[in-house]
Design a protein around this nucleic acid. Structure first.
Length: 549
RNA sequence: GGCCCCGUAGCUCAGUGGAUAGAGCGACUGCCUCCUAAGCAGUAGGUCGGGCGUUCAAGUCGCCCCGGGGUCGCCA
């Protein structure tokens, strides 16, 4: 996408050339960031990794590698320990890094990994039986951010929400709403055993009374049930869409489960499985045959004895539609971790339909534990007691909520400290990062008032200021961070990187004069590049980068 | 019982086989005559749950054990 001509790319190229000179094929290895001061600006452990294949002592390989490594950017190379190669770079490298970043602007860091291949990310997909809670928010933040990262790294991304608009739960929703309606009118009501107890159904029932009066109180319940189902589901879905918009999460498509049934897609998916020998009838039901596929340990029912398809059957039809009808080359689903046992089943089904299960990724999200005043807020969806996403957004704002929900890897539990998220101080990581951006904008505003605009970046800055060098080094590793985040589908790498980068900027800011320094051009340009990368990083996790705070 | 996740500083967690294990919060000490102190600098705090193994190298990989959570439906 960007060609091989940035300073970082040239340096990595020099490393790969040096490795090839040892007689080893390599187009992958790149330099790493050393963990400690004194170990240089870049390091590689490749000598130790090659020891076995080359049948040579690591330190000898390291020395040969060092001798082969040629670049205008290298000041000095040290081979230490059992075979580490530490590279010390000159100021020109960092001057070029800053120049590259400024030149590339908001495409800096966008490596092409996807080759415009079509990938679908399906996320949230909450049933329209109640408002989104904070757990859905985590799925929304994750799916949206993964989609943004994939787009940034060259994939053609489609974002989809699967709407479970048919089946038992909508039946229960309709009955629950109907019961609340009758209850509010003082009539006899039958609240279903596993009904939805949330307060929101009273609100919806009240709306229905305002719109339709008591006209459903005098007809048989079975006759009006359809209306309650439809009204409640549509109202709740509208609320969900509204929440998602406030959360800055966009979907390309809302895919209704009902579409699969209406168009006979479940039926044809079942026929296809039968034809391929992956489905059989027994005890009056249709079963999925798991043997010969992967992962799952037993056969599963597709069509119940009563003729109603299971959720699994719909899901097979749905994923068949994704992979075959719509032709996505890769599909990523975001699920709650409680569905983990379901992965093997769906993978098996994907294999059974003739597609490669490796093209299907599931990102599991663990629970969110809301913390207030140092203790966790109890939630129970069944009892209808949960903290909704919109309540959290009202309290913390979208930026803080998104940032907090992406601070941990999705597969582990997350403590969300509401008090911390609301704080406007350096202890709140969101503000810390955003403030770095606002500071850069402030500097640039001041600098432009002085009417200076030279693009010169003097390399000596990076020798004179340790903080400038460190900040530029973080900037230089941004493309690697992006690559890692894209390959592992892990936005939390970017929240963590953003905090480090912001930290490096604040240190630089506090220990260096910038706009009134002698080499102010170089300093302002470095600050600009840092601000640019902060903004890109925040954008990829869906958080705003304010120009003033 | 099978499968999955987790166990790292007082708390919450980073750490895709590499060097002397890091960050944030909390605690303590300094820093605004100066581009935004919503900031910076520093101090203290660790048998990486335990054991055995693989490896030149293990917080990271394998096996066993301990502790916490999840999941094992003709529910979704």
């Amino acid at each position: 996408m960007n060609g091989k001509n940035t300073a970082v790319e040239k340096l990595n190229q020099a490393l790969q050339d040096a490795i090839r000179a040892l007689g080893v094929e390599d187009n992958e290895t790149v330099f790493e960031m050393p963990r400690r001061e004194g170990w240089g600006d870049r390091a590689t452990t490749i000598a130790m990794k090659l020891a076995k294949t080359l049948k040579t002592k690591p330190i000898d390989i390291a020395q040969k590698l060092a001798a082969n490594l040629n670049s205008e950017y290298i000041d000095k190379i040290e081979t230490v320990g059992s075979g580490f190669v530490n590279v010390f770079l000159n100021g020109k490298f960092y001057a070029d890094v800053v120049e590259d970043a400024l030149k590339q602007g908001n495409t800096y860091g966008s490596v092409n990994l996807g080759n415009k291949k079509r990938v679908q990310v399906e996320f949230v997909s909450a049933n329209p039986t109640g408002p989104l809670h904070i757990g859905h928010g985590r799925g929304a933040a994750l799916g949206d951010s993964v989609a943004r990262i994939l787009e940034f790294t060259g994939w053609d991304v489609q974002r989809e929400y699967y709407v479970n608009d048919s089946g038992l739960q909508i039946e229960t929703l309709g009955k629950s709403t109907q019961a609340r309606y009758l209850e509010l009118l003082g009539k006899e009501s039958h609240f279903p055993e596993n009904g939805y107890k949330g307060e929101y159904l009273y609100d919806i029932a009240r709306e229905i009374i305002n719109l339709e009066g008591d006209k459903f109180a005098n007809v048989p319940e079975s006759e009006s049930l359809e209306y309650f189902k439809k009204y409640a589901a549509e109202t709740i879905m509208a609320g969900i869409k509204n929440d998602l918009e406030n959360f800055r999460v966009r979907f390309d498509k809302f895919f209704p489960e009902g579409y699969l049934h209406k168009n006979g897609l479940v039926k044809s998916a079942m026929e296809d499985l039968k034809a391929r020998g992956y489905a059989y009838e027994q005890d009056g039901a249709l079963w999925f045959k798991t043997e010969d596929t992967i992962g799952d340990d037993k056969d599963r029912v597709l069509i119940r004895a009563n003729g109603i398809p299971t959720y699994f059957a719909s899901d097979i039809a749905y994923h068949r539609d994704k992979f075959i009808t719509r032709g996505f080359e890769r599909v990523i689903d975001v699920w709650g971790a409680d569905h983990h046992g379901y992965i093997a089943r769906v993978k098996a089904a994907i294999k059974a339909m003739g597609k490669n299960p490796d093209d299907f990724d599931v990102l599991l999200i663990q629970l969110v534990n809301l913390i207030r005043d140092g203790t966790s807020v109890n939630m129970s969806t069944r009892a209808g007691e949960f903290v909704t996403l919109s309540e959290v957004l009202d309290e913390t704002g979208t930026d803080a909520a998104r940032f907090f929900l992406l601070m941990r890897k999705s597969d582990s539990k997350l403590d969300f400290d509401l008090d911390l998220a609301k704080k406007q101080g350096n202890d709140n990581p969101v503000f810390y990062v955003q403030y770095a951006h606002a500071r850069v904008c402030g500097l640039v505003r001041e600098y432009e008032k002085l009417g200076k605009s030279s693009k010169t970046i003097s390399p000596s800055l990076f020798n004179d200021s340790k903080e400038a060098r460190e900040l530029a080094n973080y900037i230089s590793f941004f493309p690697d961070e992006i690559k890692a985040a894209s390959q592992t589908l892990a936005p939390h790498l970017l929240t963590s990187y953003a905090m480090s980068l912001a930290g490096a900027f604040h240190s630089f800011y506090n220990s260096n004069r910038i706009i009134d320094a002698e080499d102010s051009q170089a300093r302002v340009n470095l600050a600009k590049a840092a601000g640019l990368v902060v903004r890109e990083c925040l954008d990829l996790i869906g958080v705003n980068a304010p120009e003033r705070m």
